[in-house]
Design a protein around this nucleic acid. Structure first.
Lengths: 200, 200
DNA sequence: GAAAAGAACGAACGGTCGTGCTAAAAAGAC
DNA sequence: GTCTTTTTAGCACGACCGTTCGTTCTTTTC
């Protein structure tokens, strides 16, 4: 009996709790997540849900981990199948936007970054870990595009990663406030212009 | 006895309540704002504070209005003294960054946009009004720089405003998570690169 | 001065929150 | 089948929430 996807019955319900909590965080944010609401949503008692995590914070962390994992699976992993260099970098950018759109209720990672950016504690620490990792992966993809000669040799990968992140943030912002279509169109143009300004 | 800065005693304490609440929103966000905490912070009773606003939501809206006013006073109004065109546009960008830095606890407007982007109600409505106005003002400054011939004639003001907003957002994000110095430096470079790509 | 208006207080309300504790139910091992 | 472990429910707690109400104190107006 190796570790299967879900070994015991408890792990399965734990997963379904996280799934439900994940959906709620997208709408209410991490601080808006309450054990009672999650419990009634999955049809369990508060204490039943509570027993799976031991504290509200641990539940929040579990949701944060799930968000990070999903982001990686939906944005970075598929992009790896593209040829290293500009194609892969562009694939990341496009899949990133697609990911933001698919998260109808807002990206939990963005919420977490805003909510905990000055609230010290384990959640903030973990947010920083994930954001650092994301930026590093992005810079790595940029470096490859420099190596292939598709981007200028004097490109600062971290700087371009910073600027790409800005485009994704403003797309997220505008989409939620002003509607998807215009935000997505502008973001695509912004990304094209940005990459063009770095092309050799 | 014309309307002075604060006509009656009540209006004065009302202002001081908003001031305190404003500081708290920067750290805890709008949803984290509680009347009891504000009250004890200004040395009043909960009901005393409550009487000035009539509801928690009205207090939140008062803080939001104060944030918008301060932003205008600190970013747009001073920039108007610069010559219309590129100097004024650059002044807006620089003062914007300075404003983000001066708001040690995070910009309430950014918090509000994230917190209420999918929570219908009067707060979200007002956030959209302010964000629309801001974007329009920014586009207006860009248009002037096109008219003076400093930016390319085919510049889309709304598109450039979108992209500038992205830089400010990622600067806000990185600053809070990774520290000010690097974020500010990268944002300045990003803004320079961005404007350069639009210069005629 | 008195009278009216405004400002602040303190107690209490119904509600929700996270968290313990204990017992029942379910699942798995043998 | 029984026994043991895991999983869930039920209940109660203390704390905090926004809000209401009646009262008291202070300021303004005449």
């Amino acid at each position: 009996m190796q570790a299967a996807a879900t070994a015991t019955k408890g792990a399965a319900t734990r997963d379904s709790i996280i799934e439900r909590a994940y959906q709620m965080v997208r709408r209410e944010g991490f601080e808006g997540l309450s054990i009672g609401t999650v419990a009634s949503s999955v049809g369990m008692s508060k204490s039943g849900v509570f027993a799976h995590f031991g504290s509200r914070e641990d539940l929040q962390i579990a949701v944060l981990d799930a968000a990070a994992q999903r982001f990686t699976e939906n944005v970075f992993l598929p992009a790896i199948r593209e040829r290293r260099g500009l194609p892969r970098l562009e694939a990341i950018g496009r899949r990133w936007m697609k990911w933001l759109r698919s998260e109808q209720g807002g990206c939990p990672m963005v919420s977490a970054a805003i909510e905990y950016d000055d609230r010290p504690g384990p959640i903030r620490d973990r947010v920083i870990v994930y954001q650092t990792r994301l930026r590093k992966e992005l810079a790595r993809a940029i470096s490859m595009a420099v190596e292939t000669g598709e981007l200028k040799a004097d490109t600062d990968p971290a700087q371009l990663a910073f600027e790409i992140f800005g485009v994704e943030l403003v797309m997220h912002h505008d989409w939620r406030l002003f509607g998807f279509d215009e935000a997505s169109e502008r973001a695509e143009r912004a990304l094209d212009r940005l990459l063009a300004s770095y092309k050799s």
